Deep mutational scan, measured.
Amino acid sequence: PQVPQCKALYAYDAQDTDELSFNANDIIDIIKEDPSGWWTGRLRGKQGLFPNNYVTKI
């Protein structure tokens, strides 16, 4: 099955070790969508939390 993905609308710099940094237009694999607004994703071999208001699902 296809892994859900999202595209970064803005760059995000991780504020903690469990967060994921990314650049605008990066494509992130979505591991888990949480109602809190912090999703778990994977990018370039690293997994971490990121704010879903920085991305749009594709």
Rank of each mutant, 00 (worst) to 15 (best):
K32E: 14
Q5F: 10
A14G: 09
P35N: 11
I58L: 11
S36I: 02
K32C: 10
Y12T: 01
F22D: 02
G41C: 02
T17I: 14
C6W: 03
W39K: 03
D34Y: 07
A24C: 08
V55P: 02
D18S: 14
P1L: 15
I58G: 04
P51E: 03
K7V: 13
N23D: 13
T17D: 14
K57L: 04
L43C: 07
A11S: 14
K7I: 14
D34Q: 05
E33F: 05
D18Y: 12
Q2P: 13
T56Q: 12
Y10N: 04
Y12G: 00
G37W: 03
D18Q: 10
Y12R: 11
S21F: 00
Y54N: 03
W38S: 09
I31M: 13
R42H: 10
D29I: 06
G37A: 03
F50M: 06
P1G: 08
N52A: 15
F50V: 08
E19Q: 11
F22Q: 01
L9I: 05
L49F: 12
F22R: 00
G48D: 01
G41T: 00
C6V: 14
G41A: 02
A24R: 12
A24N: 03
N53G: 13
Q15I: 09
L49W: 10
L43Y: 06
A24H: 13
A14I: 01
G45F: 06
D18W: 08
S21V: 01
I31L: 14
N25A: 11
D26M: 01
E33W: 02
R42E: 13
A14R: 05
N25R: 10
Y54L: 13
K7T: 13
G37Q: 04
T17V: 09
I31P: 01
Y10R: 15
G45L: 05
D29C: 06
Y10M: 10
Y12F: 05
D13T: 14
R44Y: 09
K46Q: 08
V55Y: 03
K7A: 10
T17A: 15
S36R: 12
K46F: 05
T56N: 12
L9R: 06
V55T: 11
P35M: 12
D16G: 10
Y10S: 09
D13E: 12
G41H: 01
C6M: 09
K7L: 11
Y10Q: 13
T40G: 03
L20K: 01
C6Y: 06
T40H: 07
K32T: 09
E19V: 05
Q47V: 15
K46P: 03
S36H: 11
Q47I: 08
K46T: 10
L20A: 01
P35W: 08
N53K: 12
Q5G: 03
E33C: 08
P35L: 06
A14H: 02
L20E: 02
Y54D: 00
Y54K: 10
